[in-house]
């Protein structure tokens, strides 16, 4: 194997374009490449890669490995893994970055085991140690109660980055990069599992991950009914409804509304939490919110340590007054 060199980003395709999390990875990779003096490459898997390849270059890639294969048109973990393992062995990068996205969640650890190396999981920040040039990753652990600083003992060094932890670079249409086709030989029997059907539980209205305003409810709501009030408020504000894991586990609202470490990561301008205590597992999903508002009856609740504005009181009464005033302000 050639000497390990450069940063390889494992890109993801969303629709026909490069995913937003991939753009974030390219920004993180450029920082590393500046201190290493080495190239940023990106791996793209699929069957129509021209558009995402150009996007990748304009957002920071020096080199695109286009792994074109009809079997890669749709995501399958086993086939993607087979392709990525081949590419990673051949390209021999010093560092591999991926997103801790839905795909990255299963591809990252499995790829690390296939390559026999370590993976710094769910990293919020990565940097090179100035002395050793080793990749150092800060990752939240214990549900966000602590931060661990870790490095990888083997090469390639791998890190999965939490979505939204980095801001994409602005597109630069003048940037130059090389697109290399990377053919792979895939055996269909490598796919050990088969998707039989897909059931969408898409929420109506504004998507949670894209909403500018999110109104979330937690255990303190006491039942499913209050989510109607939250929904009415969210509609007034043109936003979406979220929930804590406790509310989802109680069956008050579908899991697709869950915000948190094991739910969705959201980045609204305004995040209004109602009767949510603010456990660190929940806060892990909304750390990217610009302004957090807390309505909770317990003045000692952790949420007030995270919020910009807070009201201590019976959520029902506070919310009624708040919603009325919002209605007057937005419609008056």
């Amino acid at each position: 194997m050639a000497e390990a060199k450069g940063v390889l980003v494992l890109g993801e395709i969303a629709g026909a374009e490069l995913s937003s999390s991939s753009l974030e990875l390219l920004a993180a990779a450029r920082k590393l490449s500046a201190s290493l003096g080495e190239e940023v490459a990106i791996a793209l898997l699929g069957d129509t890669l021209d558009v995402p390849a150009k996007t990748a270059i304009s957002h920071g890639a020096d080199q695109v490995y286009a792994v074109n294969h009809p079997q890669l048109r749709q995501y399958h973990p086993d086939l993607f893994l087979a392709a990525l393992e081949t590419l990673c062995r051949e390209a021999s990068p010093r560092i591999i970055l991926m997103s801790r996205s839905n795909q990255g969640r299963e591809l990252g650890p499995r790829l690390a085991f296939r390559l026999g190396v370590g993976l710094a999981q769910d990293s919020l920040e990565i940097a090179l140690d100035p002395a050793t040039k080793k990749l150092m990753a800060n990752r939240p652990v214990y549900g966000g109660n602590a931060v661990a600083v870790v490095s990888c003992n083997a090469t390639p060094q791998m890190a999965a980055i939490r979505p939204k932890a980095y801001e994409p670079l602005a597109a630069d249409a003048a940037r130059q990069g090389k697109i290399t086709s990377f053919p792979v030989d895939l055996k269909p029997e490598a796919a050990r599992s088969r998707v039989v059907s897909v059931v969408k539980e898409e929420a109506k209205g504004v998507k949670l991950e894209e909403a500018r305003v999110v109104v979330s409810g937690g255990r303190g709501l006491g039942g499913p009914e209050p989510f109607k009030n939250l929904d009415a408020l969210a509609k007034l504000l043109g936003g979406a409804v979220g929930a804590s894991r406790a509310a989802v586990d109680s069956g008050w609202i579908p899991a697709s509304h869950q915000v948190g470490l094991t739910g969705k990561s959201i980045t609204p301008d305004l995040y209004i939490t109602v009767a949510i205590s603010g456990a660190s597992q929940h806060m892990a999903g909304c750390s990217g919110a610009k302004v957090i508002v807390a309505i909770n009856k317990d003045a000692e609740a952790n949420i007030f340590k995270e919020a910009r504005y807070g009201v201590v009181g019976d959520w029902q009464k506070v919310l009624t007054g708040f919603t009325e005033a919002v209605r007057e302000l937005t419609q008056g």
């Binding site: 710094a120 807390a294 009464k317």
Partner: peptide
């Protein structure tokens, strides 16, 4: 081991919450 743990710490929170009060909860 494939990973080295260099440090483990409790993150500092710097946010200050502005508490809004009224005559009553509403």
């Amino acid at each position: 081991p494939r990973i080295t743990l260099h440090n483990l710490f409790v993150p500092q929170r710097s946010k200050v919450c502005e508490m809004i009060e009224g005559d009553d909860a509403a």
